[in-house]
Design a protein around this nucleic acid. Structure first.
Lengths: 196, 196, 196, 196
DNA sequence: GACTAATCGAGACGGTACGTCAAGTCTTGTG
DNA sequence: CACAAGACTTGACGTACCGTCTCGATTAGTC
């Protein structure tokens, strides 16, 4: 039933060491500065060993980022407004720290280059977002949000604004912006009582 | 008054021809498929001539895209809801057509790589968005939108959601999504009459 | 004892093919006409492979010439006068044939540019001259030449005159000149019996 | 009859300034380090102006060297042995000083590349050598040298040995070598009284 | 203990593009 | 005309990575 386990087994220590070093390079020198040769050398590992695990530089980069964002704190205080601001503030901090910005863009580009990488990336984001979507759903059931609220659309509005602003318009993001964002999304833009 | 114009003047025809060809390559073969050598050859121009005008491949790519998006149609029907849906629908179509997706991501990455490119990109988006921001402002003055609406935040929510969704979560975007987006942004998520 | 031979071994066939083609280019089109790109292409080899073995165009050229002059015929007839004339005549023929002249000058220039190349070139000439120096030594022991004859000086006079004449003064060299040269060097210029 | 002398006359000052600067570059950075662009810039002169006078870099280099070696001291003491040693010692000093070595080789290479440059170079050497050849001729007439001495061959032996030694074998040259050289050339290598 | 099968380290290799450099030509406008 | 300025062509150079390959040496489990 199980595939026969013959031959020398993989050294799991290698995975750890390579990902650590690749993460370091990625943070220090950006995506373009992540060189397979350099990582292999620094990890004391042959390039072939690298390619046996990650079929391309893009795959390695995705693996690194997947491991980097394991735990985003999502607390449910019962006040959706507060919870969302907290969460966005956390993301804002992560973006402003380190080089993660360029990295995120490069990953999106890699996703557009290769379908399989696209799936990996999308999986990463989907898993990361699931907790917040659940949060929103619970607020709907509590009646804090309208029953017809589309959780995904709401979340897209929030997270999307953040990335769009910083990536494309180059404007800064900070906790105050996160708060304005949540307010705007929750309250809407039309005058009260005039909804269609 | 003006700096004396000495020496052989630049051949403006070259700019046109190079940008045309680069645009074609970009659309046909994507960002990675844009090769300075190939463009130079196809344009019948020396590589050095290219580098005299655009100091790197990234710069050329930015120049190309800047020229590509001259006119996005922004009509003011007097109904902001309709105008925004129209505009977003137009962007959705542009994104779904051709390879522009990967290109956008690559440009964002390039922006993160070099500061000067960042400024160029941000300028492009800023100019492109100005018309829509003005549209929103007019709707505010008409009383169609609340007076305290932050136009930039509203726009970030709309455009950002679009790009975020398609780039990072890999979900499709279509006219229906554009409509849901506008509705959500304008009407908000909290039940009517419960605004803080 | 020997350094352990790890990694993929170099393909010696490549050396042979590259040197053959480079030699051909060198002879047909001269030093300036020797292009790394062209050689790599013609040899069906990547440029990087070339640079791994010869760190610059100059190094490659030296390697080519080193291989070209493996066997200069040095016969010992017992008559030093005859032997030297034969040898010089052979060199004269080699110089007059093909482009070797410019090549020799270029190599000397390359030697002045890079120290390591200098050593290579000097090694080539040293090895090439060793046989003739031995010939001269034997003539000394036979008593054909004076015991205090400095073999190196004598050889410098002969070979040097040849190259100097053709390279710097542009005068032709031929077998007759070779003979005059040997006569002059062996017999001296002062009237007999008037030596200091 | 005379070519019409119309238009702006050439600025002779330019020639001087350019040659000065080119000479400096040549000495400081060698032949490859002599860049037309750099010379033009340093001389405050347009490249076209340079090319109007010297049709190529090689021509400029030749012009520079021609001007550099105006006066080699040739004194006639009445003792040919002494005079030759003096002269060679002077050349040895010139070679050992500065970068002239590589330069000489490059010029020889340039001579082999273009016929017209060859003629220029050969002219330079011919003129430079004329005085020494005359010296040798006078020694012949005085009976200091054998009447059948070939002055050119003798000179080739002396100067040639110098250049050959230092360019091709990489051995050092010094006044002592110059002396050994003259002795060997004048006295010959065969035992006294055994001349054929 | 021999055999088999996979991993690992090392490094050569093909390929593709990059960005740079210098030579020499051409095109302006100015004196 | 000469000249300054600088754009342009041409051609090659050397470099940097990527991803593949070929070795020999380990390191298991299997027979």
């Amino acid at each position: 039933m199980s595939e026969s386990k013959r031959g020398r087994p993989r050294d799991m220590e290698v995975d750890r060491r390579v990902l650590d070093i690749a993460a370091a390079q990625l943070v220090e020198r950006g995506y373009a500065g992540l060189s397979i040769d350099a990582v292999a050398e620094a990890a004391g590992v042959a390039k072939t060993t690298l390619y046996r695990r990650w079929p391309s530089k893009d795959h390695l980069a995705v693996a690194v980022t997947a491991r980097m964002q394991e735990a985003d704190p999502v607390a449910d205080t019962g006040d959706i407004r507060v919870d969302l601001v907290n969460y966005l503030t956390h993301i804002v901090a992560a973006i402003n720290r380190s080089r993660s910005l360029g990295l995120v863009a490069e990953l999106a580009a890699a996703a557009a280059r290769h379908d399989d990488i696209g799936e990996l990336i999308h999986g990463v984001f989907t898993r990361r977002n699931a907790l917040v979507l659940a949060l929103i759903e619970r607020a709907k059931q509590r009646g804090e949000l309208r029953a017809d609220t589309d959780a995904v659309v709401l979340f897209d509005q929030l997270a999307g604004a953040l990335y769009y602003r910083v990536l494309f318009t180059g404007m800064p993001i900070d906790p105050a912006y996160a708060e304005r964002l949540v307010t705007a999304a929750l309250d809407g833009a039309v005058p009260t009582g005039e909804m269609s």
